[in-house]
Computed example of a mutant assay.
Amino acid sequence: MTNFLKLLKDGNKPSLTAAIVNTIIAILKAGAFFLTGNVAMFAEMMHSIGDAANQFFVYIGSALSKKAPTPKFPNGFGRLVNLVCLGAVIIVGILSYETILEGWHHIQHPAASTGVAITLTVLAISIILEFSVLYKAGKEVLHEAGVKGTLLSPLTTSFTHLNQAKPATKLVFMEDLVATSGGILAFVAVLISHFTGFLQAEGIASIMIGLMMFYVVGKVFLDNARGALGETDEQMLNHIAHIVSENPHVKDIQELEVVKEGEFLHVKLVAEIDPSLSFAKVDDIHDVLKDLIMSQQGVTDVIIAFDEDDGVREWTHHKDPRTILKTHD
């Protein structure tokens, strides 16, 4: 139990914050729904319940993924966060279906809801809270990508660096982006329904919110399925190829693998060097390259081997400047 609590301290903080906030929001929305019977509020309640459950699972998964390798699991637990995310999206998928079903039922059988003031107040509070979580998640995306930005960057630049974020942070950002958008959509639908009498607006909003939730399900599922299988990090692969090639003793790269498991990167390098170098010199080159690669963000282990230079230059991937990252100190 002590080890488990220590691991939880290293869990993904944005997912924990989002889970707590969404639990509070879900309770508020549930109360508002039971008082008013508003179908748009039902959709938002289901959305918040799904987000809260998801993010609690992701927080625990991200913490357990940092557990040290054991004799039984020598490769560590890095992929555990991907597996947890895959399980979490099943919950969101079920809630998405129920949300769409309820919206369709309301369109076919529209009914006026009561307590408009309560509904709008709860939705307004929820939008503000969801937006604050989205902003913090955007800041974390930029932090994990090693990018500094302006006050608005978490809401703008973060989109272009989303693929460099950790799986848990990416999930929180996407879910709260949809949650904030869904809250605004529900707010507008309630206003339209109340002031125009077009009661189907709430059902339409419910279906749209459900479809947005399904989009998150699909996107998160595909991202984490690749992570669970062990995906090549193309950007980091080309970056490492670039910095390794800058070493004057490396004549060519025969083989380079950069496999992403959860939040961690595993590197395997076979470099070609001058065969006349002494063993001591080769050992020095090995240590320099290992320290250099291990200093890169996310790299947890590296295997380096050498082969004699055959005089034929084969590795050219690193020449594309678009794939080269800034060196992390």
Rank of each mutant, 00 (worst) to 15 (best):
M1H: 15
T2I: 14
N3M: 13
L7A: 15
L7M: 14
L7E: 15
A18R: 13
A18V: 13
I25K: 02
G37T: 11
M45T: 09
N54F: 13
F56L: 15
Y59R: 04
S62Q: 12
F73N: 14
L83M: 14
L83V: 15
A88S: 13
V92H: 06
G93N: 06
I94M: 12
S96A: 05
Y97M: 08
E98L: 03
E102K: 15
H105F: 09
H105M: 11
Q108Y: 07
Q108A: 10
P110N: 08
A112Y: 08
S113D: 04
T114E: 12
G115P: 00
A117L: 08
A117I: 10
T119K: 01
A124N: 04
I125R: 04
L129N: 02
E130Y: 03
K136C: 10
K136D: 11
V141Y: 11
L151S: 09
T160P: 00
H161I: 01
H161Q: 02
L171G: 07
F173W: 12
D176V: 05
L177R: 01
F198P: 00
F198H: 03
Q200E: 03
A201W: 01
A201K: 00
G203E: 03
A205C: 05
M212C: 05
M212G: 01
M213I: 10
R226Y: 15
R226I: 09
L229N: 05
E234C: 00
H242K: 05
V244T: 13
S245W: 02
S245N: 07
E246L: 09
N247Y: 07
P248R: 11
V250W: 05
E261P: 00
G262S: 12
E272Y: 08
D274W: 01
S278Q: 02
K281S: 09
M294K: 12
M294G: 04
Q297P: 00
E314T: 14
K319Y: 10
K319F: 10
D320W: 05
